[in-house]
């Protein structure tokens, strides 16, 4: 009996740690009134949902901006990661590991000083408060995922398969298009998903470079909770969950273990 109780308690505690905050979030999203001494909201309803999705509230604009920024970040990161990843995987650069490390460097430093400096530079270039500026800032961590995963997936492509295509009459570019790219495709999809998810809930960089002109969902959420409006923050958070969960499901389909195992090889 004891043998079963202990794991049950552990699983229960684990579930509480994961789902407790989420349950709290869900309650806040549907609470009309919830003051301090009460354990549960005193009034339930959809009032705040209507308020969030009112045209003036900016939730739609934020959602649109967030998705547009995330998609552009994915496009930029993958466009750079395909040639970079292929070169790193294939051309046996002597400085290969150094370059890979270089890509990790922005992650190694505390992000605040980096973003503050980027914001300062962007002021000079007129990029502050623009979508492009935010996309560039999001591409900084985005490129790390994209290049590392792209390198791994290109390294996983058997060289003999490319040689076979060359041997049978395909030029280098045709070979890349018809053989290499389709083989690396699952890995690139996985990289896109990581970049997308990272961009969609990126906060610090957007805060320094984008506000007040660019208001992504995380910024909207931050503004709402700083203003004590937990309902709006909770609803925004729930909206943020939609792309995240959706893309997590896509990951499962596309990410193969053998691609993951080659990361950083």
């Amino acid at each position: 009996m004891i043998r079963h109780i202990l794991p049950a308690i552990l699983i229960g505690a684990f579930a509480f740690v994961i789902f407790g905050p989420l349950a709290n979030l869900a309650m806040w999203a549907f609470a009309e009134q919830w003051f301090f001494p009460n354990r549960l909201p005193t009034e339930w309803g959809f009032d705040f949902w209507a308020r969030v999705f009112r045209p003036r509230a900016g939730a739609w604009t934020s959602l649109f901006q967030s998705v547009a920024i995330a998609v552009s970040t994915v496009a930029l990161s993958i466009a750079l990661a395909i040639p970079a990843g292929y070169a790193l995987a294939r051309l046996r650069l002597p400085a290969r590991s150094l370059i890979m490390l270089l890509f990790l460097l922005p992650q190694a430093f505390p992000s605040l000083p980096i973003f503050v400096n980027i914001a300062r530079m962007f002021y000079g270039m007129g990029l502050n408060g623009t979508i492009l500026g935010v996309v560039l800032v999001h591409s900084l961590p985005g490129l790390v995922y994209a290049v590392w995963i792209a390198t791994a997936s290109f390294a996983a492509v058997d060289r003999a398969m490319e040689e076979a295509a060359r041997n049978l009459g395909a030029g280098p570019l045709t070979t890349f298009r018809d053989v290499t790219l389709p083989q690396a495709f699952p890995g690139l999809v996985a990289a896109s998903i990581f970049v997308f998810l990272d961009s969609i809930d990126e906060f610090t960089g957007t805060f320094f470079v984008g506000t007040p002109d660019v208001t992504t969902l995380p910024i909207l959420m931050f503004n709402a909770s700083m203003g004590g409006n937990y309902q709006v923050a909770a609803i925004t958070a729930l909206i943020l969950l939609i792309p995240s969960v959706g893309f997590m499901l896509v990951i499962e389909r596309f990410l193969k273990a053998d691609v993951l195992s080659r990361i950083g090889r």
């Binding site: 058997d158 003999a160 398969m161 040689e163 076979a164 295509a165 041997n167 049978l168 053989v179 389709p182 083989q183």
Partner: peptide, 10 residues
Amino acid sequence: AMVFQSYALW
């Protein structure tokens, strides 16, 4: 035309 040791089929 070459046949590779690993066959290198796509």
